[in-house]
Design a protein around this nucleic acid. Sequence first.
DNA 1: CGGACAATTGATCTACCTCAAAATTGGTGG
DNA 2: CCACCAATTTTGAGGTAGATCAATTGTCCG
Lengths: 244, 244
Amino acid sequence: MSHILNPLIRKLESVASLSAEEKAAVLDLPVTVRQMRADHDIVRERDRPTQSCLVLDGWLCRYKILESGARQIFSFHIGGDIPDLQSLHLRTMDHNLGTLVQSTVAFIQHESVKNLAKDFPHICNVLWRDTLIDAAIFREWMVGMGRRDAPSRIAHVLCELFVKLQAVGLTKDHSCHFPITQSVIGDALGLSTVHVNRSLMELRGKGLIKLEKQVLTILKWEELREEGGFDPLYLHLESMAEAA
Amino acid sequence: MSHILNPLIRKLESVASLSAEEKAAVLDLPVTVRQMRADHDIVRERDRPTQSCLVLDGWLCRYKILESGARQIFSFHIGGDIPDLQSLHLRTMDHNLGTLVQSTVAFIQHESVKNLAKDFPHICNVLWRDTLIDAAIFREWMVGMGRRDAPSRIAHVLCELFVKLQAVGLTKDHSCHFPITQSVIGDALGLSTVHVNRSLMELRGKGLIKLEKQVLTILKWEELREEGGFDPLYLHLESMAEAA
DNA sequence: CGGACAATTGATCTACCTCAAAATTGGTGG
DNA sequence: CCACCAATTTTGAGGTAGATCAATTGTCCG
């Protein structure tokens, strides 16, 4: 029941449904588990990995550093995510993947994933689907950076992260562990730390959220949703399986 | 030799290599060709298409409209692209796809694509790979919107589009047909039309580009590349197959 | 208790926005 | 071929969200 790859199963089931046989096959994947400290790069731009990385615990992010030294974070990854699944089909990394906090990850050889995909075409489709959802999230962040002001951009990403954490059972009531720094949020949303701070205070001021000691509490979901213009459709969660 | 689906072959070969047999199978796909006027929506948010759309000629874009009325464009698509390939695995559209100018497109039933992918696993991988490159382009646009100023953001997208057009043979020397409006560029990069105009004038002033009568000419590639911080790695083009 | 990092606050500056109008351009019908 | 309309591009003038720089205050640990 409590297999080490359980987070992966939970994640995959949040995104599509799996047969018992398929689940067993996934759990059979050979993996190498490793603990990593905070701020540690797992793969870097121009690397050509032969394995992908599955998050078991902790928070990772994908990012790029510009010549100017500025950092742009593309995504956050939590338990069950396979942030660099793309390296299966894109040989050379075009960005970095690193930990934000101390994390536990499992490495899976590309070879193993390819065999799994060959033997279970449906799993292949589910994995493909997962990378497509990834892209949908990128698009939504683009909307934020292109067209939303700072408070609403932040509100939106908080909604998104909360829903994603919820989908894999990492929330408790209206709260979740939220270990990232304001400057990390800034690097993700294209804002300065100072402005993130001020916008966050604004959200607090309106009584929408509480955020202290690495615990985020959503006080008024509906208002926060509204503030960020958040519509979870783009997350394509199985649990919200749209009515016909 | 001059099959109607040639743009697709050219595109796929720019992204991976195909065997003769695979090419033949692709050319055998049953399609419905259609002409569409400019500014026409092909699929909309919340639609559940049963087919995907292949661009044969013209320019399409994917976009979203916010409650505020603002538009965010996510991508531009030219001959050979299958902009909504994702609908194969994500039932409900989370954004719109429309023409920017008069265009010719071919519709391919999902069923046909699925059969092709089943019979030719390599083609399945190539298509998956293509959607991953799509995502890489989104990430690069995020870098622009988050961390680059207007002139460099524009320079970057011009480099990107030029390289993509080049890869499918739609450039002539240092020029290409460039039918999009400054306000479209603005909606893609999160800038106002006025500011796009001023930044464009700046690039012209520096003698980097010429842009008139819908013809873009790159006058100084190296300087433009530099201005935009453009590195084509993220496009994962076969033709630039990285040295080991 | 000290040190390092994160959050907060203040003050100034600027890239980019908005509004508005003028100049161009392209397409169309007579 | 020209006149005219509609859509673009360009220019001007001010306004503002968010950046930068620089302290100050917490907070967490060893």
